[in-house]
Computed example of a mutant assay.
Amino acid sequence: MLYSSLGFNWTKTAEALSDMAEYFTTREQQQLFSNFYKQSHTLFGSSVGTLNQALAKVESNVQWAEQRLGKLVNFLAQRNGAGGLAMASSLALVMSTILTLMFR
């Protein structure tokens, strides 16, 4: 558990989760984080504000990704050829899988 590996400190745990949330860009990741928040936010005491800010950042990231990520991937694919697209897609899949597994 993240909490125990961070010395049983809710403040450090909230900060670590917030740092990870910076990279969430899908509705699925947002939903998993939101579900975690709903189930666990009372444990964080005065650090719950850090989680609230992380939720807002995830919403911002998701909106950015929905509006611009496809265009960026297309641009990179045209610029770098199919190899660049495959690498970008693979990286996105790996990151999404890791983040999903962390919140199950």
Rank of each mutant, 00 (worst) to 15 (best):
Q31D: 11
L69N: 00
L55N: 01
Q78H: 13
N9T: 11
T11H: 04
H41Y: 07
G81W: 03
F44K: 00
T50I: 15
M102G: 07
M20G: 06
S90D: 11
M102K: 04
G70S: 09
V58C: 04
G70N: 07
T13K: 01
K38H: 15
G45F: 00
F33T: 00
S89F: 13
Q78V: 15
K38L: 15
S60N: 09
H41D: 05
N52Q: 14
K12H: 12
L6R: 02
Q29L: 03
S60H: 07
Q31G: 09
R27C: 03
K71S: 11
Q31E: 10
L99T: 05
S18V: 06
M87L: 15
K38Q: 15
M1A: 05
L91V: 14
Y3P: 00
Q63K: 03
K38P: 11
F103P: 02
Q53R: 07
A82G: 09
S90G: 14
A14I: 07
E28Q: 14
F103L: 13
K71C: 11
S90E: 13
M20E: 12
K71Y: 11
L17N: 07
E28T: 08
L93R: 15
G49V: 13
F103K: 07
F44P: 00
Q63I: 08
G70D: 05
K57A: 10
A77G: 02
G81R: 02
Y37E: 02
T13V: 09
S18H: 06
E66S: 05
Q78R: 12
K71G: 08
E59S: 05
Q30M: 10
F75L: 10
S96V: 09
G83W: 06
K71L: 11
F44Y: 01
Q29T: 00
V62L: 04
A82E: 08
N9L: 06
K38I: 14
S40A: 11
G7N: 03
F44Q: 00
W64E: 10
S89W: 14
F103M: 13
L91T: 15
F103S: 09
R27H: 04
Y23W: 13
V94E: 12
F44L: 01
L69I: 09
Y37T: 02
R104A: 14
T26C: 10
Q78T: 13
R104G: 12
V58Y: 04
M1K: 01
S5W: 01
N52H: 15
L99K: 03
R104I: 05
E28Y: 08
M95Y: 10
G45P: 00
